[in-house]
């Protein structure tokens, strides 16, 4: 009788551990998937922005063809963004693109005719919309990462995360001007 109850106790503990492990394991797997999904959305938006740029540049060139420097900068930033691999690289390339775009928009300011152009106005909207989508997807990605990073470091989850070899995920940080999403304003 006594042997039996010890056996049951051990079995109970083992079962409890297995269930607990499975629970945390599944939660983490789901969360990782979620993060990857959110990151994919961020990448989509980066791609979308990169796709918009040739059109934008072509329109600006029509009015301000001699502003070579800005166009080269944009082209460089774009090819870097398209060639970027991995989260960190993409974040950096994206920041470079943002500053290049900022300079392009400063150039635009000097050409009132360009600002009045119908097609350019729509491209501006597309770009502004993409920037907005990007900051929304970035926000959502960061929120998910934040939850995940907290979960894998809190007990008892941290033990299971350790066994699974999970590491903290990187945030998509906004360069320097922290707290303020880069905004394209015309």
């Amino acid at each position: 009788m006594r042997k039996n109850s010890t056996l049951f106790l051990i079995l109970g503990i083992v079962l409890f551990l297995i269930i607990g492990y499975a629970y945390y394991h599944n939660t983490f797997v789901t969360m990782e998937e979620e993060i990857d999904g959110k990151w994919a959305e961020v990448e989509n938006n980066l791609q979308r922005r990169a796709d918009l740029i040739p059109n934008l540049v072509a329109t600006v060139k029509g009015y301000a063809g001699h502003e070579e420097k800005v166009f080269t900068e944009i082209a460089q930033a774009r090819s870097r963004l398209l060639g970027a691999q991995g989260v960190e690289d993409k974040i950096n390339a994206s920041a470079q693109m943002e500053s290049a775009l900022g300079r392009l928009l400063m150039v635009v300011e000097q050409y009132p005719q360009l600002k009045a152009d119908q097609r350019f106005a729509e491209l501006q909207d597309e770009l502004a919309g993409t920037e907005n989508r990007l900051s929304v997807s970035r926000l959502r990605y960061n929120e998910t990462v934040k939850t995940y990073n907290a979960r894998i470091r809190r007990l008892p989850g941290s033990i299971i995360a350790g066994i699974m070899g999970l590491e903290k995920r990187e945030y998509f940080q906004i360069e320097e001007k922290a707290g303020e999403a880069p905004k394209v304003e015309f």
């Binding site: 106005a121 729509e122 909207d125 597309e126 502004a128 919309g129």
Partner: peptide, 11 residues
């Protein structure tokens, strides 16, 4: 309703 169209409606 692309962003461009949405902007056009506003403008």
């Amino acid at each position: 309703i692309t962003d461009g169209r949405a902007g056009r409606v506003i403008r």
